[in-house]
Write a protein that binds this DNA or RNA. Structure first.
Lengths: 155, 155
DNA sequence: GAATTAACTTGCATGATGATAGTGACGCGC
DNA sequence: GCGCGTCACTATCATCATGCAAGTTAATTC
């Protein structure tokens, strides 16, 4: 049964999930951030079936998060490189990391974010860029500017 | 075919995705944050099949993000309420929102984060709590403190 | 030609998915 | 008491996604 698309929704979260919301997709991006580019690197680190990896890599390329790039002409060999859009996904990934460390690491964190220069462990918090205030609710909240679904007339 | 579990991975991102990584799960959480608690509210806002909603709600309750709570004894009726763990998911959700607004809103954002008191639109950025520095790479990076997979002897 | 490597592709059985009808536990009105 | 409506699921079914594992292709090396 084909999965129901979120494409008809205008919500930015839904639109993001339409592109990264399938099982394996975000983990592939995690590994791309960790430097993986080759098919076999992803396959080994994720222990994922090759046909699933092929499908997900193609979807991420299609969504503009990864770029397929030729690294060998004979034999023809491609690698997968993060695009700027892909790199902009980092705050989502690190928010997930922080949340996982807080709630699902009874034995303590296995991965932390550190300042590469000092080695100090960072504690991520989402703030407003202009004021530096943490985005807590209250006072911050979401506000809809447009209808939740696209009218068919928009097509 | 049963989806391959990430449970054997120690990475906090993988552990987070084990609990919220299925299609629909994060969108259900989005709607919980928007105030939905009743089965029918979720079903209507998401246009999701009732059997899928039941499955996903049960998984989110099992994962400790939502709590099932009786709101009527006769007839017996339950609602689904965010737990603290569920509420702690907000930065992930808002990071996804910001990323979606930047990359998948050609017609401009349909949902924004605002200061509820002033109405000013916020621009989310992930920073280190202690220093206020944006978590960009470089200088920030991840660092592994434990092996990527659990040894079977740990079971 | 055989062996090896890397990157897929293919075939198959099983579980997930979504559409939709059905069920159960009420409460309410006639 | 019966019928209807409401809410929250449950059950059924056909189709697609999934993972396992073998296979294929385009090379290179010996």
């Amino acid at each position: 049964m084909r999965r129901k698309s979120f494409e008809g929704m205008t919500c930015p979260i839904a639109r993001s999930l339409e592109r990264v919301g399938e099982w394996w997709s975000i983990l592939i991006l995690r590994d791309a951030f960790l430097g993986a580019t080759r098919f076999e690197q992803f396959q080994k680190s994720l222990d994922i079936a090759p046909n699933m990896l092929t499908r997900r890599l193609a979807a991420l390329v299609e969504a503009g998060l990864l770029e397929r790039r030729r690294y060998s002409e004979r034999p023809p060999r491609d690698e997968y490189v993060l695009t700027e859009r892909g790199r902009d996904f980092r705050p989502v990934l690190w928010s997930l990391l922080a949340w996982g460390n807080k709630h699902f690491a009874p034995e303590g964190p296995s991965v932390v974010i550190v300042d590469g220069e000092t080695g100090a462990v960072a504690d991520p918090v989402l703030v407003d860029r202009a004021t530096g205030r943490p985005l807590t609710s209250p006072p911050f909240r979401t506000r809809r500017l447009r209808p939740a679904t696209q009218e068919t007339a928009d097509v």
